[in-house]
Amino acid sequence: MPTFHRFDGFRIEVRSRDHNPPHFHMIGPDFHALVDIRTLQVIEGTYTRPALAETLAWAAGRAEALLAEWRRLNERD
């Protein structure tokens, strides 16, 4: 899967052929959560509080880029 960003100990992925709503995956050694790109709310999964805080701070200024990547990878006819 394409890694969109890598933090110390976990990564952000935007996947192709994924389901709505537009979201990204926050993946660490013992957690995996889906985060809605538009609202930055956790849709499902587990996470650590520090990882979520770091991710949300990072994603807040990158929502347009994340959404553009999600759309590029998930174009539907």
Rank of each mutant, 00 (worst) to 15 (best):
T48A: 00
R62W: 05
G45F: 10
T39G: 09
R71H: 13
T48I: 01
F7W: 03
Y47H: 13
P21Q: 03
F4A: 04
F24N: 00
I12H: 00
G9M: 02
T46S: 15
V14K: 01
I43T: 06
H19G: 02
E75V: 08
I37F: 11
A53P: 00
G28K: 14
H25I: 04
N20L: 07
R62A: 14
I27W: 07
D8K: 02
H5Y: 04
A65H: 15
P2Q: 07
F24K: 00
F4T: 08
E75W: 09
H25C: 14
Q41V: 10
P21W: 11
R71V: 12
R71D: 08
E75D: 15
R62H: 15
P21I: 03
R38E: 12
M26T: 09
R62F: 13
L34H: 15
F24P: 00
T55H: 03
L67S: 09
P50F: 07
R17I: 11
A63T: 13
E13T: 11
G61S: 15
R6C: 02
P2T: 14
R15N: 07
H25W: 13
L52M: 11
L56N: 01
G61R: 06
P2S: 12
H23F: 12
D77V: 09
L66E: 08
L67H: 02
P2N: 10
W70Q: 05
H5A: 12
I12A: 06
A68K: 07
E13H: 11
D36N: 11
T55S: 07
V14P: 00
A68G: 09
A33M: 04
L40R: 03
A57S: 13
G28S: 09
H32F: 14
H19I: 10
